[in-house]
Design a protein around this nucleic acid. Structure first.
Lengths: 187, 187, 187, 187
DNA sequence: CATGAATGAGGCTTCATTCAT
DNA sequence: AATGAATGAAGCCTCATTCAT
């Protein structure tokens, strides 16, 4: 039981840090309030996370673990794309903070090599799945062989990243993007 | 002449702040180094910008003034879209700092109403131009009347925003987006 | 057997503390690393030494026990002096840490009455032996009756203390001091 | 006039730090009390000394400037030695704090290269003067050509260093050392 | 306009120690 | 005896801002 308490406390700290970043931004991340939110002394926080950086890394881990991709391999390419984009649009709409924080992290990654590495790693998996999706679609005739897979993948990623700050438009934008690819497909 | 000096100094401060944000991020924005970069005492900076926020606002103004849109009204809709997106892709590729800083500013806007207002105002103009572009295209038969103008506008904006952190992919992504709309058009 | 373990552990803590003072100085004495070096939790250290001061006192005891003087009473005064100084010079050269730590302790004694008392006690024995040596030497005609015994004792002590920070010069300095007293003796 | 104030304040900080080291030792050197003693906020201290190390360096400079050697070149070697040692003995007796602090600094030099360099530099001058003194003495027949100059210099230095912690014995010890060299000389 | 000393609030981190287990 | 979570005090340092000059 105590073990659960420990983990809980740790999780509480991560959650508090996550919320702080979401609400106040990276600038506003102060250790004292985080500790207070978890109901402990600010020096005790260092018992769980030796340094501020360690806490931030844990936040990143927490965020990415929540976004673990759901790519349904049982659908054909077009449907899979539609489903995947829809899932992300839904996630953006329902839990925008997740993406806000990811954006802050993304920005910080420009100066923090560790963070950059972690984010890159996470994106790699996503990117690979998208490449496979488009490759398969071309193979099956869903899209023309002329389709630029790399460009398409980057377009999808860029669009989704660009939606982070405007969660309210996520749904329509994603639909529009799907439609464009469907039209290409019907051709 | 001194007036020119004044303006120069002011501009030097803004440039220094801009560079600092581009290189170190918002977190790394310290007034003292900014003043030093402009060759003045850190106290004197407050004669030009009463507060840190004021300086940041000036940086935003500086950034947006550099991005004033070039929407060529002499071209037909499809060409105009292609040209516009190409121009932005070029800008991203050539002066990525501009967009990096814009991203930092965008993120900060979530907590700074003044900044949010300024950014929104700037985007409004952009948005309106895009709406006009698509409306005209539909009117002229470039795109189907079924085209969701609002969604398309947001898609374009989201995509471009999403490119900020990956300036190297800007060109191909923009081309891909144009192609998708061209194909839709050919229909 | 466990008792031996206990003593061993205690000794390990003292040794680790000794090494820490020798290497990092008094400033650098931290309990956690000491405990870690002895392979126990930092909390457990408090079972062996209730407080940091207690541990330091034990270090002093450890150091002085290692320096228990070897004054050979079988030699005549001049030879005894030469032998004694030589022994200390050798000790300084071979185990300089012992003297470094003693110096740190000496300095600290200025503010720590307990330490001051302990050190004073240790020195008292040394001082008495030296007084006896010189007294005997005068009695036997080795040195003139004009020899200031007290001053000579303090000179010897001061010189040896002054050598602590320059272990490499210990040998020649000690030899020089002996020579000065031998010359006085030959008179 | 204000300039004097500035320098005064700076000096006040150095003096306060000096006193703190003398009374509490290096361990007890805290910036806040130092600032308070000088009548300023603890953050203002950083305006005068960017870092704690800088302040310590200033203390060292202050101490050594007070000890600038008084080697009277108008006296013959034996008299010069007697005079020099007497001067230092007097200094130790009258201002023992100076030497206490020097001892703390000396000890710290073992871990602080900058301090070690500064101290070494100061000692170099002293050492050179002593070497010259003994060389001249041998040349003039004051001492035998067999005298080990290097050893004698180190003996003098070690003795004086060893006196730091026992200022009350300085006078007699120094006299005894002089006597030993005089006797050697008379020979 | 320019300076630089001064401020006060606040930042992260470290440490010896205690307490419940 | 041993652990490790928790504490609270304290450490150095930084920053935006103000004020007297």
């Amino acid at each position: 039981m105590e073990m659960a308490d420990q983990a809980d406390r740790r999780q509480a700290l991560i959650s508090a840090a996550f919320a702080a970043i979401a609400n106040e931004g990276f600038e506003g991340l102060r250790l004292r309030p985080i500790a207070a939110a978890a109901g402990i002394d600010h020096s005790t926080l260092h018992h769980y996370f030796r340094t501020k950086e360690d806490l931030i890394a844990a936040v990143l881990e927490h965020v990415t673990s929540q976004l673990e991709g759901s790519m349904r391999n049982d659908l054909e390419p077009a449907g899979r794309l539609r489903h995947h984009l829809g899932a992300i649009a839904t996630a953006i709409a329902e839990r925008p903070e997740l993406f806000i924080v990811l954006d802050e992290l993304d920005l910080r990654a420009r100066r923090d090599v560790t963070m950059a590495a972690n984010i890159k790693h996470d994106e790699q998996g996503w990117r690979a799945a998208l490449v496979a999706l488009f490759d398969e679609g071309i193979e099956q005739g869903t899209w023309s062989v002329d389709l630029d897979v790399h460009a398409s993948v980057e377009l999808v990623i860029a669009t989704l990243k660009g939606l982070r700050l405007r969660p309210d438009t996520a749904e329509v934008v994603v639909k529009q993007l799907c439609d464009l690819y469907s039209r290409g497909a019907s051709e």
